[in-house]
């Protein structure tokens, strides 16, 4: 955390410096530099293409960030392939994209890469709106998904068999959920679905079901309800202060060996800046600052 804040400050200083420099040397031109465009180059207009590739969970966040960035820097085009965290990390490493997107921490095997956290995402445990269970411990969540607890009556609900609904192998949400609950490759699922929407639909149509989805996806859903984990409600505040247990980072992944283009560096600085916070929140994730 300390280290990241340090970096924040540096980039902020660079930004302030560059703005001051433009004000001094370019005079009236400085008025054209939008405060949103937190580029750290010496006032020169950015141009080129930034290619992003990776996590589908980050689509909304990255979408609104790149929209705002492109608006402020008309010479820059940002492309985004929503493939998956694994693919994103891989293409950042082999150079087929500028910035990889990963909705999980880097694995030990994924070396030569640097991850910059732009946002946090809480993973909500959702049940059908008709399900009486309101609070589970992290251990109970893990036991439910590994099949040790197989009936809702064992955790204070009605006498119904539990149907666990998970995501497909390789999904960032699955990886996040399983690594946090310690259920890697141990989940006994009755359905394995390939999208957040499908999980919500499936849980919403069955009182037996329990599933996991991004916090942002739960809002405004009438058929499903997020349960408390260890007595903590899944909300932005509890994810940010770390009290809600099931959360994961949204990372921008860059290769340590490759040199970033000015535009790509400026985008990373922008994504981690204060101005980006509202955009990130608007996209359903939780900004880090």
């Amino acid at each position: 955390m300390e280290e990241r804040n340090g970096m924040e400050r540096r980039s902020f200083l660079r930004l302030a410096g560059s703005l001051a420099a433009s004000a001094l040397f370019a005079g009236p031109l400085a008025a054209c530099v939008s405060p949103d465009a937190s580029n750290d180059t010496t006032g020169a207009a950015l141009s080129g293409t930034i290619s992003l590739n990776g996590s589908t969970s980050m689509e909304k966040v990255v979408g609104s960030l790149s929209e705002a960035f492109m608006e402020a820097n008309s010479g820059v085009t940002i492309t985004y392939d929503a493939t998956g965290s694994g693919t994103g990390i891989e293409s950042a490493r082999n150079g087929s994209c500028d910035i990889g997107l990963a909705s999980r921490n880097l694995k030990e095997s994924e070396t030569g890469l640097k991850a910059v956290v732009v946002a946090l995402d809480g993973i909500a445990i959702i049940v059908n709106a008709g399900n009486g269970v309101a609070d589970l411990t992290l251990q109970q969540v893990s036991d439910i998904f590994t099949g040790k607890i197989s009936n809702w009556s064992e955790v204070g609900g009605t006498d119904l068999e539990i149907a666990c609904i998970g995501r497909e192998s390789g999904s960032g949400t699955r990886d996040g959920f399983e690594s946090i609950t310690g259920t890697e490759d141990a989940c006994v699922l009755s359905q394995e679905l390939t999208s957040t929407g499908a999980v919500i639909t499936a849980v919403g149509s069955s009182e037996n079901a329990v599933g996991y989805v991004s916090l942002s996806a739960v809002e405004g859903q009438g058929d499903v309800r997020a349960v408390m984990v260890d007595g903590v409600v899944c909300s932005e505040d509890t994810v940010k202060d770390g009290s809600y247990a099931i959360q994961r980072p949204f990372n921008l992944v860059i290769s340590e060996s490759a040199t970033l283009s000015d535009a790509a560096q400026a985008f990373i600085d922008f994504a981690t800046s204060d101005e980006a916070s509202d955009l990130i929140r608007g996209a359903g994730a939780i900004p880090i600052n």
């Binding site: 493939t83 998956g84 891989e90 497909e168 192998s169 390789g170 999904s171 394995e192």
Partner: peptide, 10 residues
Amino acid sequence: SEMSYASYGS
């Protein structure tokens, strides 16, 4: 179901 998430070359 797994093609989109399986990393290249794996």
